[in-house]
């Protein structure tokens, strides 16, 4: 049985407009997340991953961020057409977000317990009393593995990993349908990373939450995700199940490059392979395929025409290499 569709992003564009220039951060991406599914959004820094996440919550900076076209459907409603009150209920209630850096995403002058209670109060649709909210706070803290006796402590009294647990507790306190995790482990060291990922995995099962996992770490994708979207210069260039991305024979040259850059434990190499060059400047994107200046398989057509989408089952590829074979 296929689970119900939860979030559908259709042909979404995001740009940042300042007096000086226009930054094309996201250029026409589409994907769907079904209930209880985990989608990994992977790509280099500046590929538009965070912009996508912010667009879903309509949190792009007021003065510069624009969504010129596209639709974001969440449970049948278009987020881009929601009014203030609907948005307020959506944020934190139905969709919660975990930010990259736990050190700065907690208010330093409020005890952590109160910060969790705050999220509960904001979305108090069941009409819980103060007492019940306090009980919920205790429960949520225990859920993420923090003794509830520490709820009156301030963020600076927690370590980085503990803080990220608190952030996760806040995000999950209102039982969101979708959790957006924006590089939740980047600021943490490897052992804590593993703990936090295991925690997210465990809670996602327990609370039946769908997750949009944003990361640049393919290891995290392999561990946590059902589906993967590889982003490059604001486009999804490859999309498929984890098996498709990690095991299929056909790959986008960029994905191949990403895998080449991971050290392999059983092979001895002096140097890791890298993808030559840098991501194109989002204010001045190249015509045709955006990856062509760095691509080893670059053909004349790549410089002129944007590649069509090649589909094989659920596996989508945006590259001229495969475009020809399927027509």
């Amino acid at each position: 049985m296929v689970a119900k569709e939860l979030l559908r992003v259709e042909d979404l564009y995001v740009m940042y407009k300042t007096d000086m220039e226009e930054v094309h951060a996201v250029n026409g991406i589409s994907f769907t997340i079904r209930e209880q599914e985990t989608l990994g959004l992977v790509g280099e820094t500046g590929a538009g991953k965070t912009s996508t996440a912010l667009a879903i919550l309509r949190l792009l900076p007021d003065r510069t961020g624009r969504i010129p076209s596209g639709n974001i459907w969440f449970q049948g409603k278009n987020i881009l057409e929601m009014d203030h009150e609907e948005l307020r209920r959506l944020r934190g209630g139905d969709i919660a977000m975990i930010f990259q850096d736990p050190m700065t995403s907690l208010n330093p002058v409020i005890p952590v317990g109160q910060q969790i209670a705050e999220a509960l109060l904001l979305h108090n649709e069941e009409g819980l009393t103060r007492e019940q909210i306090e009980d919920r706070v205790d429960e949520t803290l225990e859920l993420v593995g923090i003794p509830s006796s520490r709820k009156n402590e301030y963020p600076h009294q927690f370590s980085g990993g503990m803080k990220q647990r608190v952030v996760i507790a806040i995000a999950l306190s209102c039982n969101p349908r979708l959790l957006i995790a924006d590089e939740p482990t980047t600021a943490l060291d490897v052992t804590i990373q593993a703990q936090v990922l295991a925690l997210i995995n465990e809670l996602k099962e327990k609370l039946k939450t769908a997750v949009l996992m944003i990361t640049h770490d393919l290891g995290i994708i392999a561990e946590t995700c059902d589906k993967v979207a590889v982003m490059y210069a604001g486009e999804i260039i490859e999309y498929g199940t984890v098996e498709d991305i990690f095991e299929a024979d056909k790959h986008h040259p960029y994905t191949v490059g990403l895998f080449g850059a991971i050290p392999k434990i059983h092979e001895e190499t002096d140097r890791l392979e890298q993808i030559e060059g840098l991501m194109p400047d989002p204010t001045d994107l190249p015509p045709g395929c955006k990856f062509h200046p760095r691509c080893k398989h670059c053909m004349p057509v790549c410089r002129e025409k944007e590649p069509p989408v090649f589909q094989e089952g659920d596996h989508l590829l945006k590259c001229h290499l495969f475009g020809n074979s399927s027509g």
């Binding site: 307020r88 209920r89 944020r91 934190g92 919660a96 977000m97 930010f99 990259q100 995403s105 705050e118």
Partner: peptide, 14 residues
């Protein structure tokens, strides 16, 4: 500019 303000906004605070 702080993250926790954005986090609060992402949490649905007015």
């Amino acid at each position: 500019e702080q993250d926790f303000i954005e986090a609060a906004r992402a949490c649905g605070s007015s």
